[in-house]
Simulated scan of single mutants.
Amino acid sequence: MQDAPVYLSVVIPAYKEVDNITRGALDAVWTYLAGQSYSWEVLIVDDGSPDQTADLAEAFVNAHEGFRVLREPHRGKGGTVIAGMLAAQGTIVLFADMDQATPLREVEKLLPCFDAGYDGVIGSRSGRKGAPLVRKVMAHGFRLLRAVILRLPYHDTQCGFKAFRGAVVPDIFGRMQIFNERSRAQGAAVTAGFDLEVLYIARKLGLKVAEIPVEWHHQGTTRVHPIKDSWHGLLDLLRVRINAFAGRYSV
């Protein structure tokens, strides 16, 4: 596998993920990928975790071929995903959450879209089964705002399960303005605007992006704070719009 061109790269951002790693999240990723006929790699991108996340990930990597760890400074999920995407070598590059809220096997629903000529495919959490009511209300309000401010046509921009053709990854992630490799963060940063900026740039570039329903399970994260995150999400929407007016996403 190591000598063949990589077909699928899986980028997994990690910040304080000791619980998910110890409960077997990476084992589930390994089990699925080991059964596939195509070549693959997994990049676990540690976001400067202050706990044993990176050490546990390294221990896993030492025992499982095809996995590697990138130790990055703490910049929040957005900057961490960007670092992994730009380091990936796959023909298709997917980023997915460590908690496997969307199981990796759901990539089977995305891959056929690339054969059909799409440049990117994003997962959509239909109904958000199991999510608290407050998160569903937040999602509905955010959907209305992004349609008005950014004119993004997608039902769910925030699902952490997105794949892009490797050839377009530098074009998208190299143009990021709000979230980039220079970003820094404090604490567990939930960056709603990251996905918006990715999709806005892809649309600006004229890339074909499909939206496909995927399985999703609420994991009960404590990193979402309704009022603060809604406010930051609105600010990010406006920042993307301002950057667009200023021509910072020009092709």
Rank of each mutant, 00 (worst) to 15 (best):
A147S: 14
A147V: 01
V148W: 14
V148S: 13
V148E: 04
I149K: 05
I149N: 01
I149V: 15
I149Q: 03
I149R: 06
I149T: 12
L150N: 00
L150T: 07
L150K: 07
L150F: 14
L150C: 15
R151H: 14
R151E: 13
L152R: 04
L152S: 13
L152P: 01
L152F: 09
L152H: 06
L152M: 12
P153V: 01
Y154P: 04
Y154D: 09
H155E: 15
H155V: 12
H155L: 10
H155P: 03
D156W: 05
D156G: 06
D156L: 07
D156S: 05
D156T: 02
T157W: 00
Q158G: 12
Q158Y: 13
C159W: 00
G160W: 03
G160A: 14
G160R: 01
F161W: 09
F161P: 01
F161H: 05
K162C: 08
K162M: 14
K162E: 13
A163V: 08
A163S: 14
F164K: 02
F164S: 05
R165F: 08
R165C: 11
G166Y: 08
G166F: 11
G166S: 09
A167K: 12
A167R: 13
V168P: 02
V168S: 07
V168Y: 06
V169M: 05
V169Q: 10
V169W: 07
V169C: 03
P170L: 08
P170W: 11
D171Q: 15
I172S: 03
I172G: 07
I172P: 03
I172K: 11
I172N: 08
F173Q: 04
F173C: 08
F173Y: 15
F173K: 02
F173P: 02
F173R: 04
G174E: 10
R175A: 12
R175T: 05
M176Q: 15
M176A: 06
M176K: 02
Q177D: 10
Q177P: 02
I178S: 13
I178V: 15
I178T: 14
I178Q: 09
I178P: 00
